[in-house]
Design a protein around this nucleic acid. Structure first.
Length: 931
RNA sequence: GGGCCCGUAGCUCAGUUGGUUAGAGCGCACGGCUGAUAACCGUGAGGUCAGUGGUUCGAAUCCACUCGGGCCCA
């Protein structure tokens, strides 16, 4: 007879194969239909808020693994917080202005059409371009399962957003933190624009390397003793900056000597004599010596104040000074200083009150200040200047050197340092209140930084950063909202003008700035405070995009009704310490004296399996879109959750394979749970008191899991969530509890207390597990939810609306006792499985039910075992019989089970106890008799 | 060149204040089952804890340096 039909074998429609790539889009459609986002907000509308404020990705191109990782991470936090009972709206945003988009549009247009297009038309094209990629990325983020208000995202190009820039600018301006100044900054002569540090790429470049003597006007006696002219020898890799030279900087404490060469005395650092000699090809070194016959030496500080003839402009003089940035590893220890062409030069120049010459125009061409080189591009001028120096006799040596050099991130051309008029946010000056740096450093202390070391990074960056250059000479952005008096050039900006500009931007957008005349929107009577002029010109420069995204605390958090400032959390990659975290902090502290966030979580970068960054040239790029198509978004989500984000996160085909395997394991766990609950509903639940011990133990393990997972989520340690859940599925469930349970579930009477007890536990496991995993496996958990017994779903159309699981154990004492006791039992079980394996290898038995075992154990363990009875032990070890005796240590002997195989339950038992069912074991006979 | 961070089995992670033969799961190999079956169970082999040198009775854990990698800056 076929007894299969008499058993309660698992049944479920829940597919073993996930087919995520095809099934996930169906769930997306479902969520949209039921408006799951709106439902979660409605359900939590009176709950305490938790705002995760989205940092805006740049609206250019498709998403990559880094953006996918970041968004998945945010989504799982928002979903977790929602399930924990927080009101957690999520408004995604995009960074829409800026150079890269403008550059792309420019490339698409081509130089000819670019030359003809108006600024307003160019901006319109940029807008179209940005909006196109907002659409692309929005769809891609949603495909990852990210839940949020994608109908109403924030975009930095929207009028109300643009107005926020002005609000913050006005506040900082009012406090005297914003100034217009001249400063050398990276300048791209091709794009004709200032570049922020973030817009610079460094790459190797071959440059000139020249040694030049500047003839001293008043040489010190010790070096003049030889009766020869005395020059101070400098080294530079940028000959074109020599026309702007105003000083030579020495190291204060270094020793300088004079060396006779080519009929003159060259003064430079003693430490570098042999290096220079080698470069210059000197066969021997002739020092200028003192009376003692030793080389004459002077400290840098003793040389300071000397004057020399400017190498290009014979009619000008330069001065010798000392500074902290002089290195003695290369060069001559005497640094050619042109404050208009270098940051350190500028700093030291400011200290000594030096002029900042700037003879180079926007295109990189010398103006009249370039003397004989006027009209030449700086790079063309290099050889000409070298020739000139050679003719003048001041050139000691000209060669080349390869070094890291800055390039424009857009056009990849070499960038120069050039002093220009720019707008700055001062870190240290303020008219009212505290300086920005001081305030920002204090605000940093009020924020929780995760991981902890990240505070060091932001703190040192804020402590060391220079003033923030916020102006850009481009079209695609928000204008610096000030005016210039046409008559006298004075800046005109006050509460009245700011308010008018805010209103203008709110109603018409920043485009209006470039279309309208100020008289159309400024109130009558706004005049130049200096000369009373009434013709005002709007500022041409636009604001740095970091400023724009930074002010989202105002343009978004303050503007969206469901959000608030400060946000509970900002979450981005570690590069944002220099970027958004900082621009948000500075603008917020400047305007409100407070940080815009309560905590900041940073994650590492996505790298390949060898820890290398992903790049096209290395060929190691993995696109999230490919993974979605091949394996599904839940695999990306699981990978993201499994990684320790505090370091860089690796991804590779192997890692994704492992992730998919782990996914399948968890999926099968759900499948087992669902398939054994096909005839169960919560009204059948068995009370704790009536549960067999092992079921109570399983409940304790589940409660422990929930506790552990919840703690891991709360501590932002998502990889521990994954670890705990996965190990639980594999170790606690699959290899132990489920394995043991099968006999009871399949063979006991369907409605028996023993089977219902098992199902009660399984239902608790299922209900808890599906919730624990829901923030991560957003698609799979929803699928599971819909296969769960109807009554378990609490009439909720989505697992996203379900609360966080609670597993209550009636007695903490009993829970503790069970944990201890099962530690012993499971130890013994390990010994048993080993013995069974030996028996299998010796062909004594095959499956464990064919075995009967004889155990010995020392007293303690023995008590623990005997207490629960031999039958329970046999059940736990999945053998047909257990004998037990006291012994020195735990040992197991295996022999074939006596009795016969019951054709129904496949256990080896005494057969025919019930005469009516002579071929069956007693249990099975009983089941059939009752049925 | 500077700042911050990282480097434990093929993979993902544990390794408490430095203390016995460095752990887990996965993968792999071998075996079992065929009533979770493109599943499931068991056993086993895998690591000079990046390297070198220190501190210490004792270091994966502390210090220095080197190598490799990441982000940011020059």
């Amino acid at each position: 007879m076929d007894y299969k039909s008499t058993m309660n074998l698992p049944q479920t429609e829940f597919p073993m194969r996930a087919s995520l790539a095809t099934r996930e889009p169906e769930w997306l459609k479902y969520w949209e239909e039921i408006d799951v986002y709106g439902k979660t907000l409605e359900a939590t509308k009176d709950a305490p808020p938790f705002i995760l404020h989205d940092g805006p990705p740049y609206a250019n191109g498709h998403i990559h693994m880094g953006t996918a990782f970041n968004k998945v991470f945010k989504d799982l936090i928002v979903k977790y917080k929602t399930m924990r009972g927080f009101y957690s709206p999520y408004v995604p945003g995009w960074d829409c202005h800026g150079q890269p988009i403008e550059h792309q549009v420019e490339k698409n247009l081509g130089p000819e059409r670019m030359a003809e297009i108006s600024r307003v038309d160019l901006r319109a094209l940029c807008r179209d371009y940005a909006m196109r990629f907002v659409g692309v990325q929005s769809a891609e983020f949603q495909r990852l399962g990210v839940r949020g208000d994608f109908e109403r995202p924030y975009l930095t190009l929207r009028p109300e957003y643009e107005a926020g820039n002005v609000r913050i600018f006005a506040e900082l301006y009012r406090r005297g933190m914003i100034y217009k100044g001249s400063k050398p900054i990276h300048w791209c002569t091709r794009c004709k624009t200032a570049l922020a540090e973030a817009e610079i790429e460094y790459g190797d470049e071959t440059s000139d390397s020249i040694y030049v003597g500047f003839e001293l006007i008043d040489p010190p006696d010790v070096f003049a003793a030889a009766g020869l002219p005395v020059s101070i020898l400098i080294w530079t890799t940028t000959p074109w900056t020599l026309p702007a030279n105003v000083a030579v900087t020495l190291a204060e404490d270094a020793s300088y000597v004079g060396v006779v060469a080519g009929g003159k005395v060259l003064v430079f650092a003693e430490e570098l004599v042999s290096q220079v000699a080698e470069v210059a090809g000197w066969e021997r070194i002739e020092y200028v010596c003192g009376d003692d016959g030793e080389p004459a030496r002077m400290r840098g500080s003793e040389l300071a104040g000397l004057r020399y003839h400017q190498p290009i402009h014979a009619d000008l003089e330069g001065v010798v000074i000392t500074g902290p940035h002089v290195e003695l590893s290369t060069g001559t220890g005497a640094v050619h200083t042109a404050p208009g062409h270098g940051e350190e030069d500028w700093l030291v120049g400011r200290e000594f009150g030096l002029p900042s010459l700037m003879p180079v125009d926007d295109n990189g061409v010398f103006d009249g200040g370039g003397g004989r080189f006027a009209g030449m591009h700086v790079y063309k001028a290099n050889p000409a200047i070298i020739d000139y120096l050679r003719e003048e006799g001041s050139l000691l040596h000209a060669g080349t050197t390869s070094h890291s050099y800055p390039h424009c991130w857009r056009c990849k051309q070499k960038v120069i340092f050039r002093a220009t008029e720019q707008w700055f946010v001062s870190m240290d000056h303020v008219d009212e209140g505290r300086p920005l740096r001081e305030g920002a450093l204090e605000a940093i202390g009020t924020v929780e930084w995760i991981p902890g070391w990240s505070v060091n990074r932001i703190r040192s960056m804020v402590a060391d950063r220079p003033d923030w250059c916020i102006s850009r000479q481009r079209a695609w952005g928000v204008p610096i909202p000030v005016f210039t008096c046409a008559a006298c050039g004075e800046t005109v900006a006050n509460d009245e003008t700011f308010e008018a500009v805010i209103r203008l931007f709110e109603t018409e957008g920043a485009d209006a700035w470039f279309i309208k005349d100020p008289s159309e929107y400024l109130p009558a009577g706004v005049t130049c405070p200096r000369c009373g002029g009434t013709t005002l010109t709007p500022e041409d420069d636009i604001v740095d995009v970091w400023w724009e995204s930074g002010v989202s605390h105002t343009s978004v958090l303050d503007n969206y009704e469901e959000l608030h400032r400060p946000a509970e959390l900002y979450l981005e990659g570690s590069d944002q310490h220099r970027g958004w975290f900082q621009s948000a902090l500075l603008t917020s502290v400047g305007a409100y004296n407070a940080a815009p966030y309560e905590r900041v979580l940073t994650h590492g970068f996505i790298v390949d399996g060898d820890g290398r960054k992903m790049s096209k040239s290395l060929g190691n790029v993995i696109s999230p879109l490919d993974v979605i198509e091949k394996s599904g978004a839940d695999i990306i989500r699981l990978w993201a959750a499994a990684a320790d984000y505090s370091q860089d996160v690796s991804i590779s085909d192997e890692i994704l394979d492992r992730t998919s395997e782990a996914y399948r394991r968890m999926r099968n766990t759900f499948r087992f749970l669902l398939s054994n609950l096909y005839d169960y509903e919560p009204s059948m639940a068995v009370e704790w008191e009536q549960m067999p011990e092992i079921d109570r133990y399983a409940m304790v393990k589940l409660a422990d899991l929930v506790e552990r997972v919840t703690r891991a989520y709360d501590e932002w340690k998502f990889h521990q969530v994954y670890r705990a859940v996965f190990d639980y599925c594999v170790v606690d469930l699959s290899s132990f509890y489920f394995d043991v349970l099968k006999d009871r579930l399949y063979s006991d009477a369907a409605g028996s207390l023993s089977r219902r007890s098992a199902q009660t536990v399984l239902s608790h496991i299922l209900g808890a597990l599906v919730r624990l995993v829901a923030p991560v496996l957003t698609f799979t958990s929803e699928e599971v939810w819909h296969f769960m017994p109807e009554k378990m779903r609490e009439d909720l159309p989505s697992v996203q609306l379900a609360g966080w699981p609670v597993v209550e154990i009636p007695s903490a004492e009993e829970a503790a006792r069970l944990r201890d006791s099962y530690r012993v039992v499971l130890e013994v079980r390990d010994v048993v499985t080993k013995a069974l394996e030996d028996a299998r290898n010796a062909k004594v038995v095959n499956k464990s039910q064919e075995a009967a075992i004889a155990l010995t154990a020392p007293t303690d363990a023995l008590d623990e075992l005997t207490e629960r009875g031999l039958e329970a032990l046999a059940e736990m070890f999945i053998v047909s019989a257990v004998q037990i005796a006291e012994g020195d240590q735990i040992s197991v002997a295996v022999e074939p089970a006596s009795g016969e195989k019951c054709p129904r339950c496949w256990n080896y038992r005494e057969i025919g106890v019930d005469p009516a069912r002579p071929e069956l074991c007693g249990r099975c006979a009983g089941v059939l008799a009752d049925g």
